[in-house]
């Protein structure tokens, strides 16, 4: 069986036919070539695959592509505008919020969701908001700094 889906990805309409078991993360990476959403744990724990679905941060390894029919999906590839980095991307650069970078797309999309809910979060609220995203490199300190940097630029 296949399912036809129509959705918007990074502002562009997409139409596709997928197997029901196609996970959103595989659809984005393999069918659309958007490899920004990484696959880390595959068990819903690490957050590397986080994307926005209708504005909500979601782990795309725990959602079927079929469930995203009709939705608007944003991946890390959709954040920069006309070549200008999003303030969060700039923040991770300026504040050294990444080392290997594997967790970074997911971190940035979770942080994006957090700032949409709470434009000026405390350190504690940033850590709580990013609880579903694991980083094995940075120790998180500079990630918190990066999010604060972006919060200031975006306010």
């Amino acid at each position: 069986m296949t399912v036809s889906i129509q959705l918007e990805v990074n502002g562009k309409p997409v139409q596709a036919t997928v197997e029901p078991r196609r996970l959103l993360v595989h659809f984005l990476r393999e069918d659309l070539g958007l490899t920004g959403a990484n696959i880390g744990c595959e068990t819903s724990l690490c957050g590397a695959c986080t994307v926005l679905v209708d504005g909500d941060a979601v782990k795309s390894c725990t959602m079927l592509a079929a469930q995203a029919d009709g939705a608007s999906v944003t991946t890390i590839e959709g954040l920069a505008r006309n070549g200008d980095l999003h303030p969060l991307q700039e923040g991770f650069w300026e504040k050294h919020g990444l080392q290997c970078g594997y967790c970074t797309p997911g971190m940035i999309l979770s942080a994006n969701y957090l700032l949409a809910q709470n434009p000026s979060p405390s350190d504690e609220e940033i850590r709580e908001g990013l609880k579903g995203n694991i980083c094995r490199c940075t120790g998180y300190h500079n990630i918190v700094e990066a999010v604060k940097y972006a919060a200031e630029r975006m306010s």
Partner: peptide
């Protein structure tokens, strides 16, 4: 519950 992403779904 879990984390923000889990609570969203």
């Amino acid at each position: 519950i879990g984390d923000a992403q889990v609570r969203n779904r």
